[in-house]
Computed example of a mutant assay.
Amino acid sequence: MHERRTVFRGRRAAGFGAAALALALALTACSSDGGSEASAGGSGGSAAAPSAATDPTPPPTPTVDPATYRHALSGALGPLDSALRAVDRAGEGGALNRALDTAAARADAAADALQTTRAPDDATAGNSQLASALRALGQDLKSARGDGGRCATSPRVELGTAQSPKSVQEAGRSLTALGYDAALRLPRTEQAKHRRLANGTLIRDGSRGGLGRLTIRNGTGTDAVVTLTRGTRTAFSVYVRQGSDTTIRSVNSGSYTVYFTTGEDWNSARSSFTRGCSFEKFDDKANFRTVRVTGGTQYTVLTFTLNKVIGGNATTSRVPPGEFPS
């Protein structure tokens, strides 16, 4: 191997000593043919060794403190729990409707709060489930609100058929089992009732002293209450079960408007059915006369069939619930 060395002798030029020494070292090379070796990076150059790139590992996301989540959960559910207890205590009517309005608003507020609350990893799914269930509960509380009118199902019956209270209970139990108290006191509910009166029961009965006779046949498929009025006064109301008929005797002479309502579950306190109600009246008046004739007394006998029949000649019209006589 031949070695070629360049040496600078003599007086060192000011400012170039270090550069000359560096150049001398750079020109020292080994070559089989006396030439200097070219670096892989090009003639006379040197290539820098590639450095291994390392991706920085992101720091772990801090987990939510369970105690912090419990505090947020309590703050969201506390006002709602108080409102639901008020629904449980409220009586039917305006007091219950006001309690339902308040509870619905607080259910929505609780759902909003939980949707923006960060939960620990083990509670994330349960927190989301509870928020959705509370949103649905708010809607059901609004829908259950009674209008206080005819054919009004009790809000407690409506809530008894809703799915959201069950969903709230399931989500609450899931979180409570993990150590996050999500218990709520849901208001009591009631099962749908099927109250009926005996066929022919007189619900209202004014003074009757004539000889007129009225027979009512109910083929509508539901129970009915038939009411006869003279002017603005109710003469009598009678309960007629489905598939049955009844006869009212001693009807006084006069011209009567014949109303009838059909449905399920007779609420005597409201004098109305609570489900599937209809309100109608016959377009023609029922005219009764009791008169003395030679050899005796002549009186009117009428039959009203509530369902449509072939050959029937009586037409009916719908009546707004508020105009139906009580």
Rank of each mutant, 00 (worst) to 15 (best):
A19L: 15
P325L: 02
R188V: 08
N252V: 02
T297D: 11
S237M: 08
A40H: 06
L137P: 07
Y69D: 03
T274N: 03
A235R: 03
S207K: 02
R204N: 04
T124Y: 13
T161N: 05
G78N: 15
T315M: 01
R106M: 09
P62M: 02
S268P: 09
Q191H: 09
L184E: 09
R5C: 14
S167P: 04
A24C: 10
L73M: 10
G212T: 06
R106Y: 12
V225N: 01
R106Q: 14
A83M: 09
D284F: 08
G10P: 03
Q298H: 15
F273A: 06
R135M: 03
T6C: 12
A76C: 10
A125R: 00
R208M: 07
F282M: 03
V87H: 01
S164I: 05
D121W: 08
Y69P: 15
R217F: 05
P50D: 04
T116S: 07
T153W: 00
G160H: 00
A90M: 05
T161I: 07
R195A: 12
G45K: 09
N199E: 10
P321V: 11
A107C: 11
S32G: 08
D101Y: 02
T189G: 06
L178W: 09
T220A: 03
T262E: 08
G295A: 07
D112K: 00
R204Q: 10
R173N: 15
K308T: 12
S244M: 11
F324Y: 11
L141R: 03
L134Y: 02
S128M: 04
G210I: 12
L96R: 00
A224M: 05
V240H: 04
G243D: 00
F304P: 04
Y259A: 08
R5A: 15
Y256P: 12
K281P: 08
C151Y: 01
Q139V: 10
T305W: 01
A131E: 07
F260V: 15
T68A: 15
A107H: 07
A76H: 08
T300G: 08
T176P: 11
A22S: 10
W266Q: 00
S164W: 10
G78L: 14
T229M: 10
V293A: 05
P62H: 02
A152P: 00
T257N: 05
T68S: 15
A224L: 11
L306K: 01
C277N: 01
C151D: 02
